[in-house]
Write a protein that binds this DNA or RNA. Structure first.
Lengths: 157, 157
DNA sequence: TTCATTGCAAAGCGTTTGCAGTCAC
DNA sequence: GTGACTGCAAACGCTTTGCAATGAA
């Protein structure tokens, strides 16, 4: 994605936030827009600490409490998605922007020989998951809102 | 499963543990066997606190540190599986016995109207996931050891 | 006897909460 | 001016760690 496109997206996404806040009767605080902008500038997954440090570095001071708060709002607004990588080890939650991307799943690659250290996270999209979802919905009489699928493995030598 | 079958399974599983401990040069402590037995008596998922309270109730004293320790061993031995239910909310890790069961995935049903409270967890097994796994392996040149798939939804009224 | 394992309490760590001060409306 | 929001620090809950005591080999 080029810089121009990203800038356009950021303008758009701020508008989406504005509408959401208005609908909900929440306030237009500068923190919310700045955090949103940071998130939509990023290319990859991040956790709260990443975001906090990044904003510190850029001399934009926000407290972690506010970041947690804001993330809750963005999740509800559908502006970001939450992930829980790390199968064996307990890790902090990861997030990523979600508005312009399509839903996808993740392949978590562990460093060979270590079952703790994550080497890489690859995104993929397989249409068969949709079929499974529909089967489950009719088999159990449920409405499925979301799913999470992770594969865990190692690079073939 | 009837009582007789369960008793037989427990005898078998203890033998599996014995061999594992021997191979690894670990000790045969009574705690390990008692915890294993408790786990294999259970029908459902449990977390560390459940197990701790259950053992307290049965007047068998073990510390949580030992339970955490032992669970680590059982995971490595393939005697139990770890799960992370709770998509939005951070919850404690859940576990279940795995030796006699086939691999399966989970449908997490939230109470209608609440996106926090889990109403029910249903297990299912869909062969298509195997196909997806194989595609991923060849597409990215990886060996997949395990996966986790969760669907999150609500009961259809 | 030796050292892996246990139990206890303290520490860690990500996240949440309480509250006084601030600022969007 | 009012009350939603922010920042700070303290509290929380699950898990891990340090260490002295124990007991399997």
């Amino acid at each position: 994605m080029n810089a121009k496109q990203r800038e356009l997206n950021i303008t758009t996404i701020k508008e989406v936030l504005r509408q959401y806040l208005q609908e909900k009767g929440f306030r237009n605080t500068p923190e919310r827009y700045t955090i949103l902008e940071e998130i939509y500038m990023m290319e990859h997954h991040f956790n709260v600490d990443d975001l906090y440090l990044l904003m510190m570095q850029k001399k934009y001071h926000v407290s972690k409490a506010t970041i947690y708060n804001t993330i809750e709002i963005f999740l509800d607004a559908g502006l970001i998605r939450k992930h829980q990588f790390g199968e064996k080890t307990l890790t902090s939650s990861s997030y990523e922007k979600s508005y312009f991307d399509k839903q996808h799943d993740h392949l978590v690659i562990y460093r060979t020989g270590s079952d703790k250290e994550i080497e890489e996270i690859i995104e993929f999209c397989d249409p068969r998951i949709q079929g499974i979802k529909e089967s489950i919905e009719s088999a159990f009489g449920v409405t499925i809102d979301s799913h999470s699928l992770y594969f865990y493995g190692t690079k073939k030598n």
